[in-house]
Design a protein around this nucleic acid. Sequence first.
DNA 1: TGTCACGCTCTCCTTTTGGTAAGTACAAAT
DNA 2: ATTTGTACTTACCAAAAGGAGAGCGTGACA
Lengths: 129, 129
Amino acid sequence: MAAPHPPADVDPRVEALVHDLIGRVADKWTMLVLEILEERGELRFTELSRSIGTISQKMLTQTLRHMERDGLVIRTVHPVVPPKVEYRLTALGQSLGAAFCGVWIWAEQNLAAVEAARGTFDRPAPSGG
Amino acid sequence: MAAPHPPADVDPRVEALVHDLIGRVADKWTMLVLEILEERGELRFTELSRSIGTISQKMLTQTLRHMERDGLVIRTVHPVVPPKVEYRLTALGQSLGAAFCGVWIWAEQNLAAVEAARGTFDRPAPSGG
DNA sequence: TGTCACGCTCTCCTTTTGGTAAGTACAAAT
DNA sequence: ATTTGTACTTACCAAAAGGAGAGCGTGACA
């Protein structure tokens, strides 16, 4: 009998690596960049920056570098002045975007439920008085 | 016609809330707890702690409290001594676990690809010399 | 009497995260 | 000569994350 959901890791080394990878990839900024690039195709640095809205240059650069290193995005530098650099997803990046799709959908569908739960939790304990 | 992947948010407020929720829920420890509770059902605090292995008491408590607040886990306190507290997923927690399933699978399937990409990226730039 | 177990909670400390602001290179426009 | 625009990079600083370890309450057990 297999586990119902995650295909049970037989190898603990693999499990550790997967956990590590998840920790790296399940990052707020990474997920945002992934989503935007998936929707809009190829974008320049500042376009990306404006699309996200709240990210600092530093974090965007850092996030994009990590994603490039992990093989999720392709960085194309056009040797012009002023500089022009474009980013787009690799096939790997697209597949990760697709994998996260379920989480986006979950978040959209269950936003109200989470907020309701928080409301209940935060309310001063009704101790039947 | 729906968008191919993430069902395009019409409402920017919803989008912002979703981003916030994602940021909260796509946390390393949350994902680990979710996975373990999904696989093993109801567990006590120390069982959970041992299952994860590398988490500190402080972080486990904190993670579980957040998850409880968000309606992802149920915390059952048995009034015995020494204390006995059990945690299990709510339906909401289970659905989130299912949503993350795709990400676990992606990580398992693409671990090698990511490592290969890193190797290439980290290698001293081959400048055709 | 003393120890142990459990599930915290608290304090102290280090590491990491992330924002702001300034600097850089250079061509075209003014 | 000065300004503008792009895509960074660096230095500095504040806040948050997160680990280590002590303390707590208390009943069973030695």
